[in-house]
């Protein structure tokens, strides 16, 4: 029986992973500011949850300067995409009644 992924299951982390997974694998990821807008999270909250996902190896974080402005880009890793796909499959199984 498949288990829900505790790291992804937290509501904000689920939103972050859903947003990153919506991009093609070849895409460069999402900027922190764009992710903040999409999830409706605060800076501190979003940063903390991205760190949790990064520690689990589900996302990679790239920091760079564009001109003089710092820019943080978050990208789903292959492991993160796999974990997210399994998490979604488990949710679908629960709805289908295969798990109680």
């Amino acid at each position: 029986m498949a288990e829900l992924d505790d790291i992804i299951h937290q509501p904000l982390r689920l939103k972050i992973m859903a947003a990153l997974n919506a991009l093609p694998t070849t895409a460069a990821g999402l900027e922190f500011s764009r992710l903040k807008k999409l999830t409706g999270a605060t800076d501190g909250n979003l940063g903390a949850h991205i760190e949790t996902l990064a520690k689990a190896g589900y996302v990679s974080v790239d920091k760079a300067f564009v001109g003089k402005k710092p820019q943080t880009t978050v990208t789903a890793t292959a492991a993160g995409r796999g974990a997210f796909a399994r998490h979604v499959a488990t949710l679908q199984e629960i709805i289908a009644g295969k798990q109680v």
């Binding site: 829900l4 947003a19 999409l38 949710l91 709805i95």
Partner: peptide
């Protein structure tokens, strides 16, 4: 473990974010 209502709510949340990302890119 969560029940089917909570699972459906999580999937709806995912769909909503996917739509928003798609629209944001467009």
């Amino acid at each position: 473990m969560i029940d089917s209502k909570q699972a459906a709510s999580a999937l709806a949340e995912i769909d909503d974010i996917v739509q928003r990302v798609r629209q944001s890119r467009i």
